[in-house]
């Protein structure tokens, strides 16, 4: 008898197989089949949902409340929609200190205000002690679609822009759990990506926020849909010092680590310089960089390649399983 393992929720292959093999065919809906970060509904609406189970609830740079707002907001932004309304549902564990819940609610209020979204409906359930873990949050988001992502228009020479450093969120949460005996000044990058919205009107072709599975997973999934291989350059990928240190020390790869306030943007070749200037002009995009391009000099269609610091080529595959559970 098969049972659900933690691996299913890791963002890896098992999860993708589960969604493609069980969820999508069960409902056979063309809107679901696109599997974007949000569904684009008739009438110019975008609709998305996400659940948050991060452990611990509070970590440097963020908390579950802030994550629950920004995660859903960002799914709308990268789907070409301006976030407007959020639902808020709690699953609380019996015995939770109400002060903890108050802190989470305050954080949600602040984050929602900052992101310009209204919380307009919700739900609260309490489960017996041990049947949950302190606080789980679900948010659904509705936004007004301002542009449709156009991955089918991506051409050779188009540029891949990363809006900042990789892995800070994943590392901040892990170290907040006191794991690996490592301490650093790392902070989660949890933030709303609203400053990317104007790029849609300027011809952005595709965006995706870099969450579970990291940059390698996000770009591998894009590469699978394109007739050209993608090539990114290791030297151009911005990393914070704490992430660099953790990567060397623990042997983990920042390309597979989760962020909560970073996105990749595919820009038409002619606009890449303009896009980069605009992204860098925002405080959350200061370390943005063009990290690669759509090309056909190396690799085969469908592949994502990394040119290493010394000029070698490395094939990147989607994350198979994240070794760090419950980071979002």
């Amino acid at each position: 008898m098969s049972k659900i393992s933690l691996e299913l929720g890791s963002g890896g292959r098992l999860m993708r197989d589960f969604i493609a093999g069980k969820i999508v065919p069960s409902f056979a809906d063309p809107l679901l089949r696109d599997l974007g970060d949000a569904a684009l509904l008739p009438g110019g609406l975008a609709f998305t949902t996400d659940s948050y189970v991060v452990d611990p609830l509070f970590f440097p740079g963020g908390d579950i409340g802030r994550l629950a707002v920004n995660g859903t907001v960002n799914d709308l932004v990268v789907s070409g929609a301006e976030p407007r309304f959020l639902s808020l549902a709690f699953i609380l564990e019996e015995g939770l200190e109400s002060e903890v819940l108050d802190r989470v609610i305050r954080s949600i209020r602040t984050a929602a205000k900052a992101a310009g979204v209204r919380i307009v409906t919700g739900d609260t359930k309490v489960v017996r002690r041990g049947q949950g873990d302190k606080v789980f949050v679900n948010t659904a988001g509705v936004g007004r679609s301002i542009a449709r992502p156009r991955p089918e228009r991506i051409r050779r020479g188009d540029k891949i822009i990363l809006t900042g450093t990789l892995g800070d969120h994943s590392l901040a949460v892990t170290l907040a759990r006191g794991e690996y005996g490592l301490k650093s000044g790392v902070r989660s990058d949890c933030a709303p990506l609203l400053f990317l919205l104007p790029l849609w009107k300027r011809g952005a072709l595709w965006m995706r926020d870099v969450t579970r599975g990291g940059l390698a997973t996000v770009l591998s999934e894009l590469a699978e849909r394109l007739p050209y291989p993608l090539l990114i350059e290791e030297d151009k990928i911005p990393l914070s010092r704490p992430v660099r240190a953790a990567a060397e020390l623990l042997g983990i790869d920042p390309l597979f680590m989760a962020c909560e306030g970073k996105a990749v943007v595919v820009a038409p070749a002619a606009r890449a310089g303009d896009f980069l200037r605009r992204i860098r002009a925002h405080p959350l995009g200061r370390r943005a960089a063009v990290i690669g391009e759509v090309q056909d000099r190396v690799g085969r269609p469908g592949e994502l390649l990394l040119r290493t610091g010394v000029g070698g080529l490395r094939l990147l595959e989607p994350l198979t399983s994240e070794l760090l559970p419950r980071i979002c």
């Binding site: 393992s5 933690l6 691996e7 098992l14 690996y180 005996g181 020390l249």
Partner: peptide
């Protein structure tokens, strides 16, 4: 038997990834 990642632990059991044996 699958891998440690795909195995479902017995009741109350868990897998923990460590960097140091001292953890």
């Amino acid at each position: 038997l699958g891998s440690l990642q795909t195995a479902v632990p017995a009741r109350g059991s868990r897998l923990r990834i460590v960097y140091s044996p001292e953890e």
